[in-house]
């Protein structure tokens, strides 16, 4: 770009709201998504709202039934947080698969959410966990279900004067389990071909309920509601696992692109769910 963009770097959330209320502009946090676009000359904005110094957006707190993760929490912070480790281990697992350490140190949960890529690695976890988003503006704070946040490919319900402030993740209870699996193009620095998070409650080998979030298989992150219903209250048998595999392969809506094929994504998404279910009934619990 020939012009040099103007940057506003507020120190407080109110200041940030104030700036956004005047004029819509691109919001930059850790920069791991936006700077890539800027470097590739694919983003030519005249102004940026730099929220990196808004400390109110940081922190991971225990809120009783849930944990509250500030929008600026980095992947590294989530990985190291005892709260996230204990109460949302799939989010730790997901964070460890993002890029590599350099990206984990700067990339933020809020950024992953707002960037709205269908391949965002944390998104299936938030979907499976039925997380809630705190969205703020000068007009006040509102709560919304994460699973209602996306409307279409890279489109969210966020108004131009709003910021995602924090994410509330309901804690994993003692009798619940979670699971995360990312199938990427390689073992680090990879974009996912399919990425799945599961939260479930099992009693012996009966699946009381299951929540399945999947990324990279549709224009947005999705919940596999049909497959979840199919599995609810059922005893896990190899027959049911096969049904589940078929069901979710048909339920998702992947495309063929430069990374992978529709056929592969359908098939492997099914296999990954099957792996989770096998893990419940296998004696070693590892699903292998």
């Amino acid at each position: 770009m020939m012009h040099t963009p103007k940057v506003y770097s507020p120190r407080s959330l109110d200041e940030a709201y104030e700036i956004l209320s005047r004029r819509a502009m691109k919001v930059i946090a850790g920069g791991t998504d936006l700077m890539v676009l800027i470097n590739a000359r694919q983003l030519d904005a005249e102004e940026f709202l730099d929220i990196w110094r808004v400390d109110e957006l940081r922190g991971i707190a225990d809120e009783g039934d849930s944990i509250r993760i500030g929008a600026l929490a980095t992947y590294t912070e989530m990985i190291r947080s005892p709260l996230v480790q204990e109460f949302a281990p799939a989010l730790v697992a997901a964070s460890r698969t993002v890029g590599a350490i350099q990206i984990q140190n700067r990339g933020t949960l809020g950024g992953n959410i707002v960037n709205a890529s269908p391949a965002g690695d944390s998104l299936p976890v938030l979907a499976a966990y039925d997380a809630e988003l705190e969205i703020g503006s000068l007009r006040g704070l509102r709560l919304m279900s994460f699973n209602q946040f996306y409307t279409a490919y890279r489109r969210t319900v966020l108004e131009s004067d709003e910021l995602v402030v924090a994410v509330r993740v309901p804690k994993l209870k003692a009798d619940e389990r979670d699971f995360f699996c990312k199938v990427g193009t390689r073992r680090a620095q990879a974009i996912s071909k399919t990425v799945m998070a599961v939260k479930a409650k099992t009693e012996n080998e009966i699946l009381e309920w299951i929540r399945v979030g999947v990324g990279s298989v549709a224009p947005t992150v999705v919940r596999a509601y049909k497959t979840e219903s199919l599995l609810a209250g059922r005893a896990i048998t190899s027959d049911l696992i096969e049904q589940a595999r078929q069901s979710i392969s048909l339920e998702v809506n992947p495309i063929t692109d430069l990374r992978s094929t529709e056929h592969y994504r359908r098939r492997v998404t099914g296999n990954v769910l099957a792996r989770f279910l096998r893990g419940i009934i296998d004696s070693d619990g590892a699903g292998t």
Binding site: A100, T185, Q189, I191
Partner: peptide, 16 residues
Amino acid sequence: IVNRMLTNYIIPTSMD
């Protein structure tokens, strides 16, 4: 060539 960036022309990392 469509995949002309390091994010999509992939070579092995230390983990691979």
